[in-house]
Design a protein around this nucleic acid. Structure first.
Lengths: 174, 174
DNA sequence: TCGGTGTATTCACTCAGTCAATAGTGACTA
DNA sequence: TAGTCACTATTGACTGAGTGAATACACCGA
Protein backbone atom coordinates (compact mmCIF):
# COMPACT_ATOMS: atom_id res chain seq x y z
CA UNK A 1 0.00 0.00 0.00
CA UNK A 2 2.96 2.35 0.49
CA UNK A 3 2.23 3.96 3.82
CA UNK A 4 5.08 6.47 3.41
CA UNK A 5 3.70 7.89 0.17
CA UNK A 6 0.14 7.95 1.45
CA UNK A 7 1.21 9.92 4.52
CA UNK A 8 3.28 12.18 2.32
CA UNK A 9 0.22 12.72 0.16
CA UNK A 10 -1.87 13.65 3.18
CA UNK A 11 0.85 16.06 4.30
CA UNK A 12 0.84 17.62 0.86
CA UNK A 13 -2.59 19.04 1.68
CA UNK A 14 -1.32 20.86 4.76
CA UNK A 15 1.17 20.38 7.61
CA UNK A 16 -0.15 18.21 10.40
CA UNK A 17 0.69 16.32 13.57
CA UNK A 18 1.30 12.59 13.72
CA UNK A 19 -1.82 12.09 15.73
CA UNK A 20 -4.12 13.85 13.26
CA UNK A 21 -2.38 12.21 10.34
CA UNK A 22 -3.21 8.82 11.80
CA UNK A 23 -6.87 9.81 12.08
CA UNK A 24 -6.98 11.03 8.49
CA UNK A 25 -5.26 7.94 7.22
CA UNK A 26 -7.73 5.69 9.02
CA UNK A 27 -10.72 7.63 7.75
CA UNK A 28 -9.70 7.24 4.12
CA UNK A 29 -7.45 4.21 3.87
CA UNK A 30 -7.51 2.28 7.09
CA UNK A 31 -11.18 1.48 7.45
CA UNK A 32 -10.56 -2.25 7.64
CA UNK A 33 -7.04 -2.12 9.02
CA UNK A 34 -6.21 1.05 10.91
CA UNK A 35 -2.62 2.22 11.11
CA UNK A 36 -0.91 2.00 14.50
CA UNK A 37 0.23 5.30 15.97
CA UNK A 38 3.69 3.91 16.40
CA UNK A 39 3.87 3.13 12.73
CA UNK A 40 2.94 6.66 11.81
CA UNK A 41 5.74 8.08 13.93
CA UNK A 42 8.25 5.49 12.77
CA UNK A 43 7.41 6.31 9.16
CA UNK A 44 7.55 10.05 9.78
CA UNK A 45 10.98 9.64 11.38
CA UNK A 46 12.26 7.88 8.26
CA UNK A 47 10.71 10.49 6.00
CA UNK A 48 12.31 13.24 8.08
CA UNK A 49 15.67 11.50 7.91
CA UNK A 50 15.37 11.36 4.12
CA UNK A 51 14.49 15.03 3.89
CA UNK A 52 10.96 14.40 2.67
CA UNK A 53 9.22 15.95 5.62
CA UNK A 54 10.37 18.54 8.10
CA UNK A 55 9.74 17.81 11.78
CA UNK A 56 8.91 20.96 13.70
CA UNK A 57 10.02 21.60 17.26
CA UNK A 58 7.92 20.16 20.05
CA UNK A 59 5.40 22.80 20.99
CA UNK A 60 3.67 22.77 24.36
CA UNK A 61 0.00 23.72 24.44
CA UNK A 62 -3.28 22.48 25.75
CA UNK A 63 -2.32 18.89 26.37
CA UNK A 64 0.90 16.97 25.81
CA UNK A 65 3.65 18.28 23.56
CA UNK A 66 3.13 17.87 19.88
CA UNK A 67 5.25 18.18 16.79
CA UNK A 68 4.11 19.60 13.48
CA UNK A 69 5.32 17.86 10.33
CA UNK A 70 5.38 19.56 6.95
CA UNK A 71 6.29 18.22 3.54
CA UNK A 72 9.44 19.44 1.76
CA UNK A 73 10.04 20.00 -1.93
CA UNK A 74 11.71 16.61 -2.17
CA UNK A 75 8.66 15.01 -0.59
CA UNK A 76 6.37 16.93 -2.89
CA UNK A 77 8.36 15.69 -5.86
CA UNK A 78 7.99 12.11 -4.66
CA UNK A 79 4.22 12.48 -4.43
CA UNK A 80 4.14 13.96 -7.92
CA UNK A 81 6.06 11.04 -9.38
CA UNK A 82 4.02 8.53 -7.44
CA UNK A 83 0.76 9.97 -8.76
CA UNK A 84 2.02 10.14 -12.34
CA UNK A 85 3.34 6.58 -12.57
CA UNK A 86 0.96 3.64 -12.77
CA UNK A 87 1.66 0.78 -10.38
CA UNK A 88 3.15 -2.44 -11.70
CA UNK A 89 0.23 -4.59 -12.79
CA UNK A 90 0.48 -8.04 -11.19
CA UNK A 91 4.24 -8.26 -11.60
CA UNK A 92 5.04 -11.33 -9.55
CA UNK A 93 2.13 -13.69 -10.04
CA UNK A 94 2.83 -14.81 -6.54
CA UNK A 95 -0.09 -16.14 -4.61
CA UNK A 96 -0.73 -18.02 -1.43
CA UNK A 97 -3.54 -19.92 -3.13
CA UNK A 98 -1.14 -21.42 -5.63
CA UNK A 99 1.48 -22.14 -2.99
CA UNK A 100 -0.96 -24.09 -0.85
CA UNK A 101 -2.21 -26.13 -3.78
CA UNK A 102 1.32 -27.03 -4.86
CA UNK A 103 2.52 -27.92 -1.38
CA UNK A 104 -0.62 -29.98 -0.78
CA UNK A 105 0.00 -31.93 -3.97
CA UNK A 106 3.68 -32.41 -3.13
CA UNK A 107 2.78 -33.86 0.24
CA UNK A 108 0.01 -36.05 -1.14
CA UNK A 109 -2.75 -34.10 0.61
CA UNK A 110 -6.08 -33.35 -1.00
CA UNK A 111 -5.76 -30.07 -2.82
CA UNK A 112 -9.38 -30.41 -3.92
CA UNK A 113 -10.51 -30.34 -0.32
CA UNK A 114 -8.48 -27.24 0.36
CA UNK A 115 -9.80 -25.47 -2.73
CA UNK A 116 -13.31 -26.37 -1.72
CA UNK A 117 -12.86 -24.84 1.71
CA UNK A 118 -11.35 -21.78 0.10
CA UNK A 119 -14.30 -21.41 -2.24
CA UNK A 120 -16.68 -21.56 0.70
CA UNK A 121 -14.69 -18.90 2.55
CA UNK A 122 -14.67 -16.72 -0.54
CA UNK A 123 -18.41 -17.00 -1.07
CA UNK A 124 -19.04 -16.13 2.54
CA UNK A 125 -16.82 -13.08 2.26
CA UNK A 126 -18.65 -12.05 -0.90
CA UNK A 127 -21.90 -11.97 1.01
CA UNK A 128 -20.25 -9.78 3.65
CA UNK A 129 -19.02 -7.39 1.01
CA UNK A 130 -22.43 -7.27 -0.65
CA UNK A 131 -23.84 -6.19 2.70
CA UNK A 132 -21.12 -3.57 3.15
CA UNK A 133 -21.82 -2.32 -0.33
CA UNK A 134 -25.49 -1.92 0.46
CA UNK A 135 -25.17 -0.35 3.87
CA UNK A 136 -21.95 1.68 3.82
CA UNK A 137 -20.97 5.03 2.43
CA UNK A 138 -19.90 5.57 -1.13
CA UNK A 139 -16.24 4.89 -0.43
CA UNK A 140 -17.08 1.64 1.30
CA UNK A 141 -19.17 0.63 -1.68
CA UNK A 142 -16.28 1.30 -4.02
CA UNK A 143 -13.89 -0.71 -1.89
CA UNK A 144 -16.43 -3.49 -1.59
CA UNK A 145 -16.67 -3.58 -5.36
CA UNK A 146 -12.92 -3.90 -5.55
CA UNK A 147 -13.03 -6.82 -3.16
CA UNK A 148 -15.88 -8.53 -4.94
CA UNK A 149 -14.20 -8.28 -8.33
CA UNK A 150 -11.04 -9.84 -6.98
CA UNK A 151 -12.94 -12.54 -5.13
CA UNK A 152 -14.63 -13.41 -8.38
CA UNK A 153 -11.22 -13.55 -10.04
CA UNK A 154 -10.02 -15.94 -7.34
CA UNK A 155 -13.14 -18.08 -7.73
CA UNK A 156 -12.61 -18.37 -11.47
CA UNK A 157 -9.03 -19.41 -10.81
CA UNK A 158 -10.10 -21.92 -8.18
CA UNK A 159 -12.51 -23.58 -10.62
CA UNK A 160 -9.86 -23.67 -13.31
CA UNK A 161 -7.36 -25.18 -10.91
CA UNK A 162 -9.74 -27.86 -9.70
CA UNK A 163 -10.24 -28.87 -13.31
CA UNK A 164 -6.48 -29.09 -13.86
CA UNK A 165 -5.61 -30.81 -10.63
CA UNK A 166 -4.46 -34.04 -12.25
CA UNK A 167 -2.01 -32.33 -14.56
CA UNK A 168 -0.84 -30.14 -11.71
CA UNK A 169 -0.11 -33.02 -9.41
CA UNK A 170 2.07 -34.36 -12.17
CA UNK A 171 4.05 -31.12 -12.21
CA UNK A 172 4.31 -31.06 -8.42
CA UNK A 173 6.11 -34.39 -8.42
CA UNK A 174 8.87 -33.25 -10.78
CA UNK B 1 3.09 -15.40 0.40
CA UNK B 2 4.37 -16.79 3.68
CA UNK B 3 7.91 -17.80 2.84
CA UNK B 4 8.38 -19.60 6.18
CA UNK B 5 5.45 -21.94 5.61
CA UNK B 6 6.36 -22.58 2.00
CA UNK B 7 9.89 -23.54 3.00
CA UNK B 8 8.50 -25.66 5.80
CA UNK B 9 6.25 -27.36 3.25
CA UNK B 10 9.20 -28.11 1.00
CA UNK B 11 11.12 -29.51 3.96
CA UNK B 12 8.15 -31.73 4.77
CA UNK B 13 8.97 -33.71 1.64
CA UNK B 14 12.49 -34.48 2.81
CA UNK B 15 15.37 -32.85 4.70
CA UNK B 16 17.43 -30.53 2.58
CA UNK B 17 20.12 -27.85 2.55
CA UNK B 18 19.43 -24.15 2.33
CA UNK B 19 20.97 -23.99 -1.07
CA UNK B 20 18.79 -26.72 -2.57
CA UNK B 21 15.74 -25.35 -0.83
CA UNK B 22 16.27 -22.03 -2.54
CA UNK B 23 16.45 -23.77 -5.92
CA UNK B 24 13.26 -25.72 -5.25
CA UNK B 25 11.45 -22.64 -4.07
CA UNK B 26 12.42 -20.70 -7.17
CA UNK B 27 11.39 -23.52 -9.48
CA UNK B 28 7.89 -23.68 -8.06
CA UNK B 29 7.12 -20.34 -6.47
CA UNK B 30 9.77 -17.82 -7.39
CA UNK B 31 9.61 -17.85 -11.17
CA UNK B 32 8.96 -14.14 -11.36
CA UNK B 33 10.66 -13.12 -8.14
CA UNK B 34 13.30 -15.55 -6.95
CA UNK B 35 14.10 -15.79 -3.25
CA UNK B 36 17.49 -14.46 -2.14
CA UNK B 37 19.81 -17.00 -0.54
CA UNK B 38 20.21 -14.75 2.44
CA UNK B 39 16.48 -14.75 3.01
CA UNK B 40 16.35 -18.52 2.96
CA UNK B 41 19.01 -18.75 5.66
CA UNK B 42 17.49 -15.96 7.72
CA UNK B 43 14.12 -17.70 7.59
CA UNK B 44 15.63 -21.08 8.40
CA UNK B 45 17.39 -19.55 11.41
CA UNK B 46 14.08 -18.23 12.74
CA UNK B 47 12.36 -21.57 12.11
CA UNK B 48 15.17 -23.36 13.93
CA UNK B 49 14.94 -20.96 16.84
CA UNK B 50 11.20 -21.69 17.08
CA UNK B 51 11.74 -25.44 17.01
CA UNK B 52 10.09 -25.92 13.65
CA UNK B 53 13.15 -27.18 11.87
CA UNK B 54 16.27 -28.87 13.14
CA UNK B 55 19.58 -27.53 11.86
CA UNK B 56 22.12 -30.33 11.44
CA UNK B 57 25.82 -29.90 12.15
CA UNK B 58 27.99 -28.44 9.42
CA UNK B 59 29.29 -31.34 7.41
CA UNK B 60 32.40 -31.02 5.27
CA UNK B 61 32.36 -32.76 1.91
CA UNK B 62 32.99 -32.12 -1.74
CA UNK B 63 32.82 -28.36 -1.67
CA UNK B 64 32.12 -25.89 1.11
CA UNK B 65 30.54 -26.92 4.38
CA UNK B 66 26.81 -27.44 4.32
CA UNK B 67 24.10 -27.87 6.87
CA UNK B 68 21.12 -30.18 6.55
CA UNK B 69 17.77 -28.90 7.80
CA UNK B 70 14.92 -31.22 8.70
CA UNK B 71 11.38 -30.46 9.78
CA UNK B 72 10.24 -31.24 13.32
CA UNK B 73 6.85 -32.41 14.57
CA UNK B 74 5.98 -28.84 15.50
CA UNK B 75 6.85 -27.71 12.01
CA UNK B 76 4.87 -30.55 10.51
CA UNK B 77 1.88 -29.52 12.61
CA UNK B 78 2.17 -25.97 11.32
CA UNK B 79 2.13 -27.15 7.73
CA UNK B 80 -0.90 -29.31 8.45
CA UNK B 81 -2.84 -26.40 9.92
CA UNK B 82 -1.75 -24.08 7.11
CA UNK B 83 -2.98 -26.50 4.47
CA UNK B 84 -6.28 -27.11 6.23
CA UNK B 85 -7.23 -23.47 6.77
CA UNK B 86 -8.34 -21.29 3.89
CA UNK B 87 -6.65 -17.92 3.61
CA UNK B 88 -8.57 -14.78 4.55
CA UNK B 89 -10.39 -13.67 1.41
CA UNK B 90 -9.65 -9.99 0.71
CA UNK B 91 -9.81 -9.01 4.36
CA UNK B 92 -8.49 -5.46 4.21
CA UNK B 93 -9.76 -4.02 0.94
CA UNK B 94 -6.55 -2.08 0.89
CA UNK B 95 -5.29 -1.09 -2.50
CA UNK B 96 -2.71 1.23 -3.97
CA UNK B 97 -5.08 1.99 -6.85
CA UNK B 98 -7.63 3.45 -4.48
CA UNK B 99 -5.02 5.33 -2.47
CA UNK B 100 -3.62 7.04 -5.56
CA UNK B 101 -7.05 8.06 -6.76
CA UNK B 102 -8.00 9.51 -3.40
CA UNK B 103 -4.73 11.39 -2.92
CA UNK B 104 -4.92 12.72 -6.46
CA UNK B 105 -8.42 14.04 -5.81
CA UNK B 106 -7.39 15.56 -2.49
CA UNK B 107 -4.55 17.42 -4.14
CA UNK B 108 -6.66 18.55 -7.06
CA UNK B 109 -4.75 16.42 -9.58
CA UNK B 110 -6.41 14.59 -12.42
CA UNK B 111 -7.39 11.14 -11.16
CA UNK B 112 -8.83 10.38 -14.58
CA UNK B 113 -5.44 10.80 -16.18
CA UNK B 114 -3.86 8.49 -13.65
CA UNK B 115 -6.56 5.86 -14.12
CA UNK B 116 -6.11 6.08 -17.84
CA UNK B 117 -2.38 5.48 -17.57
CA UNK B 118 -3.08 2.60 -15.23
CA UNK B 119 -5.51 1.05 -17.69
CA UNK B 120 -2.91 1.23 -20.43
CA UNK B 121 -0.30 -0.42 -18.21
CA UNK B 122 -2.78 -3.14 -17.28
CA UNK B 123 -3.69 -3.87 -20.88
CA UNK B 124 -0.05 -4.10 -21.83
CA UNK B 125 0.61 -6.50 -18.98
CA UNK B 126 -2.36 -8.59 -20.10
CA UNK B 127 -0.79 -9.04 -23.49
CA UNK B 128 2.43 -10.15 -21.81
CA UNK B 129 0.57 -12.68 -19.73
CA UNK B 130 -1.32 -13.95 -22.77
CA UNK B 131 2.04 -14.62 -24.37
CA UNK B 132 3.37 -16.36 -21.25
CA UNK B 133 0.23 -18.44 -21.16
CA UNK B 134 0.74 -19.56 -24.73
CA UNK B 135 4.46 -20.24 -24.60
CA UNK B 136 5.17 -21.39 -21.06
CA UNK B 137 4.73 -24.61 -19.17
CA UNK B 138 1.50 -25.63 -17.54
CA UNK B 139 2.35 -23.97 -14.24
CA UNK B 140 3.17 -20.72 -15.99
CA UNK B 141 -0.14 -20.88 -17.80
CA UNK B 142 -1.98 -21.33 -14.53
CA UNK B 143 -0.18 -18.40 -12.94
CA UNK B 144 -0.78 -16.30 -16.03
CA UNK B 145 -4.48 -17.08 -15.75
CA UNK B 146 -4.41 -15.92 -12.18
CA UNK B 147 -2.78 -12.67 -13.22
CA UNK B 148 -5.18 -12.12 -16.10
CA UNK B 149 -8.26 -12.67 -13.95
CA UNK B 150 -7.03 -10.15 -11.41
CA UNK B 151 -6.06 -7.65 -14.08
CA UNK B 152 -9.58 -7.94 -15.45
CA UNK B 153 -10.90 -7.33 -11.95
CA UNK B 154 -8.76 -4.20 -11.68
CA UNK B 155 -9.93 -3.00 -15.08
CA UNK B 156 -13.56 -3.39 -14.11
CA UNK B 157 -12.86 -1.42 -10.97
CA UNK B 158 -11.01 1.27 -12.90
CA UNK B 159 -13.98 1.75 -15.23
CA UNK B 160 -16.36 1.90 -12.31
CA UNK B 161 -14.19 4.43 -10.55
CA UNK B 162 -13.85 6.67 -13.58
CA UNK B 163 -17.64 6.74 -13.76
CA UNK B 164 -17.89 7.73 -10.10
CA UNK B 165 -15.09 10.25 -10.07
CA UNK B 166 -17.33 13.23 -9.43
CA UNK B 167 -18.94 11.73 -6.37
CA UNK B 168 -15.56 10.51 -5.17
CA UNK B 169 -13.94 13.91 -5.38
CA UNK B 170 -16.76 15.12 -3.18
CA UNK B 171 -15.82 12.50 -0.58
CA UNK B 172 -12.11 13.32 -0.85
CA UNK B 173 -12.72 16.89 0.21
CA UNK B 174 -14.48 15.99 3.45
C1' DT C 1 48.88 -21.13 -11.41
C1' DC C 2 45.54 -17.95 -12.35
C1' DG C 3 40.95 -16.72 -12.86
C1' DG C 4 36.30 -17.98 -13.43
C1' DT C 5 32.20 -20.70 -12.15
C1' DG C 6 29.28 -23.19 -9.07
C1' DT C 7 28.28 -24.53 -4.32
C1' DA C 8 27.11 -23.05 0.45
C1' DT C 9 26.63 -20.02 4.24
C1' DT C 10 27.16 -15.92 7.23
C1' DC C 11 27.15 -11.00 8.57
C1' DA C 12 25.76 -6.45 9.00
C1' DC C 13 22.20 -3.69 7.86
C1' DT C 14 17.51 -1.30 6.65
C1' DC C 15 12.58 -1.14 6.57
C1' DA C 16 8.06 -2.32 8.27
C1' DG C 17 5.44 -2.99 12.00
C1' DT C 18 3.99 -3.96 17.12
C1' DC C 19 3.52 -3.40 22.12
C1' DA C 20 4.28 -1.06 26.11
C1' DA C 21 5.49 3.05 28.40
C1' DT C 22 5.23 7.90 29.31
C1' DA C 23 3.00 12.26 29.97
C1' DG C 24 -0.19 16.10 29.96
C1' DT C 25 -5.18 17.72 30.32
C1' DG C 26 -10.01 17.73 31.51
C1' DA C 27 -14.05 15.64 33.39
C1' DC C 28 -16.53 12.82 36.34
C1' DT C 29 -17.14 10.84 41.06
C1' DA C 30 -16.94 8.79 45.63
C1' DT D 1 -10.35 16.66 47.00
C1' DA D 2 -7.98 12.65 45.78
C1' DG D 3 -8.68 9.05 42.41
C1' DT D 4 -9.24 7.37 38.08
C1' DC D 5 -10.87 7.38 33.54
C1' DA D 6 -10.70 9.02 28.75
C1' DC D 7 -8.46 11.57 25.31
C1' DT D 8 -4.43 13.65 23.17
C1' DA D 9 0.42 12.94 21.69
C1' DT D 10 4.86 10.81 21.23
C1' DT D 11 8.81 7.71 22.19
C1' DG D 12 11.50 3.43 22.90
C1' DA D 13 12.65 -1.23 22.64
C1' DC D 14 11.85 -4.97 19.97
C1' DT D 15 10.71 -8.68 16.18
C1' DG D 16 10.30 -10.19 11.41
C1' DA D 17 11.13 -9.65 6.53
C1' DG D 18 14.34 -8.81 3.31
C1' DT D 19 18.96 -7.15 0.94
C1' DG D 20 23.93 -6.75 -0.43
C1' DA D 21 28.41 -7.86 0.41
C1' DA D 22 31.71 -10.97 2.10
C1' DT D 23 33.74 -15.46 2.85
C1' DA D 24 35.24 -20.02 1.60
C1' DC D 25 35.85 -24.41 -0.75
C1' DA D 26 36.29 -27.23 -5.13
C1' DC D 27 36.74 -27.94 -9.80
C1' DC D 28 37.93 -26.76 -14.56
C1' DG D 29 40.11 -24.68 -18.46
C1' DA D 30 43.77 -21.58 -20.51
Amino acid sequence: MSVPLTLLGLLDREPSHGYDLKRDYDAFFGRTKPLAFSQVYATLARLARDGKVLAGETEPGGGPERRRYSITDIGRGDVEVWLAEPIEPEPHLQTELFAKVMIALMLGRSAAKYLDAQRTAHLSRMRELAELRRSGEMIDALLADYGVFHLEADLRWIDLTVARLDALSEAARS
